[in-house]
C-alpha cells in the first residue's frame, strides 16, 4: 500500500489522518484520498487541478517534478508526504 500523510498544519483546518491508498501515479493516489475527503482537494490543488503554488509533495523523500498533472510514478510501497512549502510565508 501507498502511505499518504500530511503536514500537521493542515489539521488546523480539517481532519486529514494518514491514509493507505493504491495507484500508479501521485494523481491516482491523491484522487483516492480526495474521494474519501472531498474538502481536502481544495487545500492541495487549485481550481484547475494543479498543485497549489505553496504546497509541496514528496514521494519517498523526493519532491515531485510534475506539479501540473501529478504524473510522477509510484512504487507499490511508496510514501507520499504533503508539505507546506516555506515559500508560502
Amino acid at each position: 500500500m501507498i502511505k499518504v500523510s500530511f503536514t500537521p498544519n493542515l489539521n488546523r483546518h480539517l481532519s486529514c489522518p494518514q491514509q493507505d491508498v493504491v495507484g500508479d501515479t501521485v494523481a491516482q493516489a491523491l484522487q483516492m484520498v480526495f474521494a474519501g475527503n472531498p474538502q481536502l482537494q481544495g487545500y492541495i490543488l487549485d481550481d484547475q487541478g494543479r498543485l497549489r503554488r505553496h504546497v509541496a509533495v514528496f514521494v519517498d523523500g523526493q519532491m515531485i517534478l510534475d506539479r501540473r498533472y501529478l504524473s510522477d510514478r509510484l512504487q507499490a510501497d511508496s510514501t507520499i508526504y504533503i508539505a507546506q512549502a516555506l515559500s508560502g510565508g
Binding site: 487545500y43 492541495i44 510565508g89
Partner: peptide
C-alpha cells in the same frame, strides 16, 4: 490561506460556530 488557498466560512445567527462552505471556483479551462 497562504498555502492552502481561498476558503469561505459561514456562521448562522446567534451561533459561534463557523462552518466551511463552498468556495467560488473557476471551471476547468477558464
Amino acid at each position: 490561506l497562504g498555502h492552502f488557498g481561498v476558503k469561505l466560512h459561514r456562521a448562522e445567527p446567534g451561533s459561534d460556530q463557523w462552518r466551511e462552505i463552498a468556495t467560488p471556483k473557476y471551471p476547468p479551462g477558464a
